[in-house]
Simulated assay, not measured.
Amino acid sequence: MTTTAPAPPDTSRAPDPVAPPRPPRRLTPAVLTVPTLLVLLVALGYPVGWQVVTSFQKFGLAQQFGQPPEWVGLDNYVALLTDANLWLVVARSLVFCVVCALVTVVVGLGLALLMGAAGRVGRLCLQVALLLAWAMPVVASMTVWTWIVNWRNGLLNWLLEQVGVDASGHNWLVQPLSFFVVAGVIVVWMSVPFVALSIYAGLTQLSPEVLEAAEIDGAGGWLRLRHIILPLVAPVISIVLLLQLIWDLRVFTQVKLLQDAGGVANETHLLGTYIYQLGTGAGDFGSASAVSILMLLITVAVSWYYVRSLMKEETP
Rank of each mutant, 00 (worst) to 15 (best):
T3G: 11
G169K: 08
L81T: 12
V165Y: 08
G262S: 11
C100F: 02
T3V: 15
I229N: 00
M190G: 09
P137F: 09
S168T: 15
N153D: 14
A118K: 08
A91M: 04
G116F: 02
T4S: 13
V302S: 05
G164W: 03
E212D: 08
W147P: 10
V236W: 02
Q259P: 08
V264I: 15
F252M: 03
R152E: 10
P208M: 02
T253D: 08
N157E: 00
P9V: 05
T11D: 10
L203F: 07
L197V: 08
V181S: 11
P20L: 06
V103D: 02
L230C: 11
E209L: 12
L278W: 00
V174M: 10
T253W: 07
M142D: 00
L132I: 14
Q127I: 12
L37G: 12
L258P: 04
I237E: 06
A234D: 13
V300F: 02
L241E: 01
K58S: 14
V251Y: 00
E313M: 14
D10V: 15
R26E: 13
A101F: 11
S289K: 06
Q277Y: 11
F252I: 01
T273K: 00
L102G: 06
A261M: 08
P208D: 00
V174D: 10
A301Y: 04
M115H: 01
A261P: 09
A167P: 08
A129K: 12
A30I: 12
T273A: 01
V233I: 15
G262L: 04
A282Y: 10
L278D: 02
H170Q: 15
A19W: 05
V31R: 14
L80I: 09
V236M: 06
A196V: 02
L86I: 06
A5H: 09
V195H: 00
V107P: 04
Y276C: 01
W172H: 12
L27N: 05
P231S: 11
G164K: 10
L296H: 06
N85G: 15
L88G: 15
V291K: 05
V42H: 05
A5V: 12
R26H: 13
W147Y: 07
W222A: 07
A301G: 13
R250P: 00
Q259T: 01
L81P: 10
G116N: 14
M136K: 04
L74S: 04
Y306M: 07
I298S: 01
I199F: 08
S191E: 00
I148C: 05
A112N: 00
Q259W: 05
R250S: 06
F194K: 05
T82Y: 03
G122W: 11
M311E: 09
R152A: 08
P9D: 12
W71H: 03
L159Q: 13
D16L: 15
P21V: 15
Q162T: 15
T36P: 02
L278I: 11
Q57R: 03
G110P: 02
M115W: 00
P69G: 02
S309N: 15
L242S: 14
V78F: 14
I239H: 09
R226L: 07
H170M: 14
G263P: 01
A19D: 03
D217S: 08
P47S: 09
R22D: 05
F180C: 05
V128E: 11
L86D: 07
K312G: 12
V18S: 12
A135L: 11
P316Y: 13
P29Q: 03
F56W: 03
I199P: 00
L197I: 06
A135H: 13
S178E: 08
P316D: 08
S238M: 07
P193R: 04
A201Y: 11
